[in-house]
Design a protein around this nucleic acid. Sequence first.
DNA 1: ATAAATTTATGTTTTTTAGCATATTTTCAC
DNA 2: GTGAAAATATGCTAAAAAACATAAATTTAT
Lengths: 251, 251
Amino acid sequence: MHICEKCCIFAQNFSISLRMRLKEEQYAPMWELSPIWATLTEEERVRVAEQVEIVRYEKNEIIHNDGDESQYVWMLLKGKVRIYKEGIGQRLQIIRLLKPYDIFGYRACTVNEPYNSSASAFEACMVYRLNREFFNELIRENGKFCYEVMLMMAKDLAFSEIQTVNLTQKHIRGRLAESLLLLLKNYGYEEDGQTLAMLLPREDLANMSNMTTSNAIRTLSQFAQEGIVGIDGRHVKILNEKALERISRLG
Amino acid sequence: MHICEKCCIFAQNFSISLRMRLKEEQYAPMWELSPIWATLTEEERVRVAEQVEIVRYEKNEIIHNDGDESQYVWMLLKGKVRIYKEGIGQRLQIIRLLKPYDIFGYRACTVNEPYNSSASAFEACMVYRLNREFFNELIRENGKFCYEVMLMMAKDLAFSEIQTVNLTQKHIRGRLAESLLLLLKNYGYEEDGQTLAMLLPREDLANMSNMTTSNAIRTLSQFAQEGIVGIDGRHVKILNEKALERISRLG
DNA sequence: ATAAATTTATGTTTTTTAGCATATTTTCAC
DNA sequence: GTGAAAATATGCTAAAAAACATAAATTTAT
């Protein structure tokens, strides 16, 4: 593909053109938000600018379903997303939690397979969305981009294997502690420096931790009684991170 | 790197030169054994020929340990290998089983991280071994090779996520059935068409299936009593594959 | 603001699985 | 081949977690 003057001008004005599309909210172009897209050439950025769509998903809206033909790669711009699989008897297992600028749906796209998990929005979300075929074009033509996608997959694979052992071998308390620390690592604290910046229903906490909802409720209450966490509805304060780490480590 | 006449001749005679190194046993060059290495250019094949080592590991010998600095990428030539993680209280979880021409250790190498799992030989094994730095050179300079490595990782990631749900949500019988089917899929049958071509100690079967050894023994005996499998020491016959699939599916 | 629905809390029972004990069989080293 | 060690088999007990039940609190829709 050629790079004509017109394209270059378009590229330079890209953020402006994007902002025109999206009336209410403004987002930087992808390559400013994640090092993965920063590997794209100017010419590729122009094409991305032409292809990318901005989509809004409402609270609890399903973005893709396990088994659906893969069609899009997404980058989360705003909000939080859960990636999960449905196992035996409609029991969900949350595999991964996403925060802004995380990329998802890409694994299935790279291998042209159906998605092997589902994604839904915890809260109202904004995403960039790219077509599978276009994403694969980028991977095939740009070695650096392919390399970055591979590195991202390597991270996801390591996490998945660690989680397998965490979820199978640790006892309930260890699994819950693990999940709370994960939430902390992923989303951090509110301004007060101890309340988790994530209002998570107990059911989701259970689905992260491979336990029933009532055990998540019960065990979290126990942690509160022991002064390890503070509970105020869905607001959870981490009062003793060291204790959580110890419980998580010992299983 | 240049491609001189000498190199070309060397490349053409590569398999012979390899066979000279390895006195007892002969193996085809990597690019004939796995599509991943087939993406290498002639020039790269020459360098691989210079770099590759053939190593033998004895029964139960550890190939790499979780936490070790990553140094090599391996391709299994002969034998069987278990990839596992140690969790709580020395309890092992087998993450993956390898058969000839499977590649392992590559994830840690791509990200220059320590291995995040251990590998040991079920039985005496032969492997090709490549240096991490050289492997990364290949990835960085050859987009097609990088793409193949990414695809391999995508497969491993999908498998890992499926296993997480299998191991956490299914009951003992479901998990054992799952493991037996996995062994079947991976290693197939003996000549008789029903004995698993894998003599697996019950302890390993337990470590695959997230259960204690005595539960693996007990549950396998139950399957035998129900006529689903036949047991003759470590030789396991699959008598009713459909039943195993049903048990695995229902959890 | 109020009623209905959902979520959280907590106690009890049942099921599942681990842990332990012991006997038997098989494998391995010499 | 023989004895020691390891692996397999099986029963019993204890612990862990799910399932169920019910009530209270919170959220949501109107």
